[in-house]
Design a binder for these strands. Structure first.
Lengths: 113, 113
DNA sequence: CATACGATTGAACGATTGTTCAATCGTAAT
DNA sequence: ATTACGATTGAACAATCGTTCAATCGTATG
């Protein structure tokens, strides 16, 4: 025989640790937006410099349109901020936490499998 | 007139900062797996205790099958580890970086919009 | 004003996603 | 051996995703 196991108490304990649906949903959205390679590349590129939409497109080999669509998402989730300069729209990171996420995510990704 | 802008140099600079496709892809996978509310809840629940598949299902109100599918993904990406005990499969977090990601992600998510 | 350039928009498309469902496997207990 | 329980699997489905394409907007420059 192995150690006894009570489903009841485990479930009750685990349930207590969960944040509200709203918080979980918001966290998931944040991670999800970083979960696409092109969007992630955009964010990484912006850790160095402010860039206009076209430069991002050229840097990543994406269409201007695709970049614009993604920037709108990134802005909506407060990862990216934008300012206008003439006919350019310059994008930059909006939040200092983002670079932390990138750093840790990269560490996990490049660890020995 | 505003400040002059050279696309050429901005693109060249930005390109240098980008990790390889392989690294970016792996990072994106890591974020993506945390980008689903149910999967994220599973991971959060496991920060506290080791849990069997059924307990996770009961805690989150998911079917056993759905949980099992997601655990396989989490295991493949090395977020979750599993050990057997009798007929139970106990899951726990596989990597200490994960909790850091959760903490920072939560901070960003709960910041004032 | 007309032109060019950078940016945005919305519809449409194929591709991917997460779940359900039913069937099956494995282990422990009777 | 049979039963019960926990876990896994694969097919199938609706839903969501990210891109392309064409059209349009805005602003600076000729």
């Amino acid at each position: 025989m192995t150690s006894p196991h009570s489903h009841r108490t485990s479930v009750a304990t685990a349930k207590r640790t969960l944040p509200s649906d709203q918080v979980v949903g918001s966290m998931a959205e944040t991670f999800k937006v970083l979960g696409d390679p092109n969007r992630l590349r955009i964010v990484i590129a912006l850790t160095q410099t402010e860039l206009c939409t076209l430069d991002i497109a050229r840097t990543l080999g994406m269409s201007e349109s695709a970049v614009s669509h993604q920037l709108r998402l990134l802005k909506a989730l407060r990862l990216v901020r934008q300012r206008k300069e003439g006919k350019l729209v310059l994008s930059s990171l909006d939040d200092e936490h983002i670079e932390d996420l990138l750093r840790i995510g990269r560490r996990h990704a490049t660890e020995a499998a």
